[in-house]
Design a protein around this nucleic acid. Structure first.
Lengths: 126, 126
DNA sequence: TAACTCTTGTCGGGTATTCCGACACATGGT
DNA sequence: ACCATGTGTCGGAATACCCGACAAGAGTTA
């Protein structure tokens, strides 16, 4: 026993969540693990293990990854922003602010569509 | 050679800056390294080494420390916030928002005083 | 189906970083 | 001088990470 320091310790769960978000951000940009690995000067397998929650991520690594993925660090840590707004909402707001009026309207309609849909019980998922 | 993974790697410098900020935040609250260590379930010496830049900090550790120190993670990473405002400015804004109107006015006057002073030729640098 | 490509997941041995107690160095108070 | 408190540092043991090699899964082509 006593087999954990950074990879599993009190964080067991949290590394999984962090890895999932890192993967989501990477795939959103269409990047391969290998590209990220080169950018970070890391072995390719490390990226894989990170995204699967089997390897910890240092604060500095996370900062660099956040820059690469063009998201605030808070989006990955899940913390709340200054105003008490969840980080992901703040990030959405920033993204939306860069859109044209038309695109923003469309985004709004889609958001409302999702809201409506979530209220309906049945429906097949994915 | 090649003696680095998380503690010194490409970050050599950055861990020093991060450690300094962590120390500043801790001392601002008047906490002892031992208290932080207990809160983090870490050896007391680890906190010392972190603050001196001789030990890396995991992303999850930083998240917990940020909560403990009551500051946004971005304040430690030095990244920019959603609006493009430096994190420390955002933090100042959040702090100021908790002040009374009078105190905020005074803070504002002091800020303007500092700005004016920096414009004057004589005077010390930065 | 077989064979090839591309991307990602996993294993094993070697190595670096961290853990953890013990001790040293301040500083402050009696 | 003697404690007490808070922090820095050393040394060996524990372990997380590096890194190449190989396997699994999905697409493609014939």
């Amino acid at each position: 026993m006593t087999a954990e320091r950074i990879g599993f310790a009190s964080s067991g769960n949290e590394n999984l969540a962090l890895g999932a978000k890192l993967r989501e951000a990477r795939e959103y940009l269409g990047l391969k693990q290998e590209q990220v690995a080169r950018h970070m000067a890391l072995p390719r397998t490390a990226v894989s293990e990170i995204e699967n929650g089997r390897r910890g991520v240092s604060a500095i690594e996370l900062t660099k990854l956040a820059r690469l993925y063009q998201r605030p660090v808070a989006w990955f840590t899940g913390e709340e922003t200054g105003a008490g707004v969840p980080a992901d909402v703040a990030f959405l707001a920033r993204t939306a602010s860069a859109l044209s009026d038309n695109d923003r309207q469309e985004l709004q309609r889609f958001a409302e569509f999702l809201r409506t849909k979530s209220k309906v019980p049945g429906d097949g998922q994915s």
